[in-house]
Design a protein around this nucleic acid. Structure first.
Lengths: 120, 120
DNA sequence: TTAAAGTATAGACTATACGCTAAGGTTGTT
DNA sequence: AACAACCTTAGCGTATAGTCTATACTTTAA
């Protein structure tokens, strides 16, 4: 599929897709048999990758981290041991974030209680 | 205390403190009796606010959101009902973030299992 | 066949959250 | 009085993650 269809399928603008491609997160390929244009073609995996980017961004991963994640997810060349290391790192950082979020929840809840009780 | 001491107490550079002040998150006040300089003085509450900013930033709140939080926390003028509304909004968004983080953890764990089992 | 719609590249622009430097005045110690 | 250490405003620079504009070529539909 071309960038327009990819854009619709993934719910991401063509501009942003090009930005991700320039950042090395995804890659389209030209059809070498076609000489008249330089249109890039994208596959189903790219749709998945864009969805992964969206989800991972929403939990606070940076594009650099998401790049590592995509490599661990889709690279045929990365050794399994390295993939597991990357995935474990991400799991640890997710746990740490959850821990911090819970601490913040506790703080806000406590303060809410104080406000409600008139200690303000 | 002056900005240098505040900086040390809160572990934030003077530059960043000035940036926060310009952003409306904190406020120092000049001693009007002193005419020879324009030094600003900060109180203990400001140290607390800077710590709150640090913690809230680490869980992904933007400075704009942190501004609302600080108002709910410290404003003497904001009605209690409004404070509670703001705090409840933050609690809801924290729960949503925790939910997303857990979903991402699940995804990565599942994929890790697949990789470990050689389905890659 | 020509106008609309799609694609490519390059580069300028935006917002957030700072970091850094300059140029100047003030305070404290010796 | 000299000098370090501190404070002020102003403004430019940086990284991330886009967003938009300009220019130009290609494809598609009427």
């Amino acid at each position: 599929m071309l960038i327009g269809e990819l854009s619709k399928r993934a719910g991401v603008t063509a501009h942003t897709i090009r930005f991700y491609e320039k950042s090395g997160l995804i890659r389209g390929k030209r059809d070498e048999r076609v000489k008249s244009n330089k249109y890039k073609h994208y596959d189903e995996e790219t749709v998945e990758k864009l969805m992964l980017i969206r989800d991972a961004k929403s939990v606070g991963f940076t594009l650099a981290e998401i790049g590592q994640l995509i490599d661990a997810w889709y690279s045929r060349r990365m050794p399994v041991a390295h993939k597991l290391t990357v995935l474990n790192e991400k799991l640890v950082s997710l746990d740490e974030r959850i821990r911090q979020l819970k601490a913040m929840k506790k703080m806000i809840s406590q303060y809410k209680q104080d406000v409600a009780d008139g200690h303000c």
